[in-house]
């Protein structure tokens, strides 16, 4: 029994299967890319959003926070922080962000700390735009509730 299943057959499954599935992945990726513009609403991706992503990366926010569930698990999810803290208006979210970024680190003993990043007003506004844009990506309705 075991002899009839030869090494050659195993090798063919490896090469054949591996190549086939990889091509399938490439095909699916093309299809996904075609449909993506609608889901990621890139028409709204302004200069400010792009700069905001840069500020996000330059300060390694992902080292404490998750964004769409990916990153670190030390601090709140931020892909939906606009929904949570914005009170439904972009105006008040920007105000919240300015106040929040300026207030760090909060002086509560023993509580996890977010550092002070010394950002300019423009940088904070860009961050807000980036987080607002992110909150509107079609992500199949994740997270389950507003707490993230």
């Amino acid at each position: 029994m075991a002899e009839r299943f030869t090494k050659g057959m195993a090798r063919n499954i490896y090469y054949g299967g591996g190549v086939f599935v990889f091509l399938l992945l490439v095909g699916l990726t093309f299809d996904t890319m075609l449909k993506m513009p609608e889901r990621d609403h890139r028409v709204n991706l302004t200069e400010s959003v792009a700069r905001g992503k840069g500020v996000w990366e330059h300060n390694n926010c992902i080292g404490c926070h998750s964004l769409m569930g990916e990153g670190a698990y030390y601090a709140p999810e931020l892909a939906n922080v606009f929904d949570r803290r914005g009170a439904g208006s972009e105006q008040s979210f920007r105000a919240f962000m300015s106040a929040w970024m300026a207030a760090q680190p909060l002086q509560v003993e023993g509580r996890r700390k977010m550092p002070q990043f010394h950002l300019t007003q423009e940088q904070v506004d860009d961050l807000s735009e980036f987080l607002i844009w992110t909150s509107r990506i079609d992500d199949n309705d994740w997270p389950p509730n507003i707490e993230g």
Binding site: R39, M68, D139, W142, P143
Partner: peptide
């Protein structure tokens, strides 16, 4: 990994 980050 593509469930909740945008893909279809």
């Amino acid at each position: 990994h593509y469930f909740w980050i945008g893909p279809g």
